[in-house]
Design a protein around this nucleic acid. Structure first.
Lengths: 154, 154
DNA sequence: TTATTTGACTATCTTTGACTATTAATATTA
DNA sequence: TAATATTAATAGTCAAAGATAGTCAAATAA
């Protein structure tokens, strides 16, 4: 019990709840100072507990004025998309299955034909060709990131 | 937050909007004085936030009565802009530059805000995270693949 | 073993300042 | 007066310093 990572996780979630917001910006070093831990500990917490699969999206910027923005995805009011992202895609997906998902979403009117094409351009074998190792894994990550746009809220 | 560069960027854009004009002339040293910063800071802001691909054109003159003229370019034809941007992307692009391109395309109405977000999800460091070697190269390839969808169809 | 924690090293973005380049205004000279 | 030189007023460049965040692997804990 009381693993530092868990405490930091709760702290961040607490901040968001208290502020009744779905978007939070932190400074990595400040937070690390607050918990008297290595800054990279914050990265660990984010990487293990604030992933897309767990319903969060992270954006960050380095340099002066840098920050880490944590955004909670809206998986409650958009359960269908949430489920696809959090459960269906998983850690790995083929081009074929990715396209099937996109086609079905397009048919349902959840995404436009053009959005579908943009996303297929990414999940395409050719686009992913540049780097060979574990294409299906990369594709899954990118697809989930793209779909998470549909359930972001500010 | 409070990144000086961002504040200066907003200040300049605000001046243009207030004056309802696409052309603004500033004096580098005056502006630097106003923000109490090094004059070269102004060059930095212009170089990173008022570039051609973002739709701005800069002309300047040194010497007594010198000035820096910032001109906001009118939206030109979509294919033309598309071509410029594709050329600008080249073989490699940073997350920062990718996002600026997308912002500018969105502002010009070439892509929707949601399409912009989808593409940013891909160019994001985090999404590209799985494979580290030559991220900028992979990003450039994916971005061009996505954008080519738009150019093909328009 | 697996998950967590740490720290050294790296990458990125911003800010500053010393030095350089250019131009306009003014002074000097032919 | 016209040409030229000088000075002052700008802006530009570039590299170093500062301010963040990211990565990765070794050490530690559960």
């Amino acid at each position: 019990m009381s693993r530092l990572s868990d405490i930091i996780e709760q702290f961040i979630k607490g901040l968001m709840e208290d502020a009744r917001t779905n978007m939070l910006e932190i400074r990595r070093n400040e937070l690390a100072d607050h918990f008297n831990c290595a800054p990279s500990q914050i990265n660990y917490v984010l990487a293990t507990r604030f992933t897309i699969d767990k319903g969060y999206y992270i954006v960050s910027r380095r340099g002066g004025g840098g920050f880490i923005r944590i955004q909670k995805l809206d998986t409650e009011s958009k359960p269908y998309i949430g489920q696809i992202i959090m459960e269906y895609i998983g850690d790995s997906i083929s081009q074929f299955d990715a396209e099937r998902i996109l086609d079905s979403m397009e048919k349902k009117g959840i995404i436009t034909p053009r959005e579908s094409e943009i996303m297929k351009a990414v999940t395409n074998e050719k686009s992913l060709n540049v780097f060979s190792p574990s294409k299906d894994i990369v594709r899954a990550g990118l697809l989930k990131s793209m779909l998470s746009v549909l359930i972001r809220r500010d």
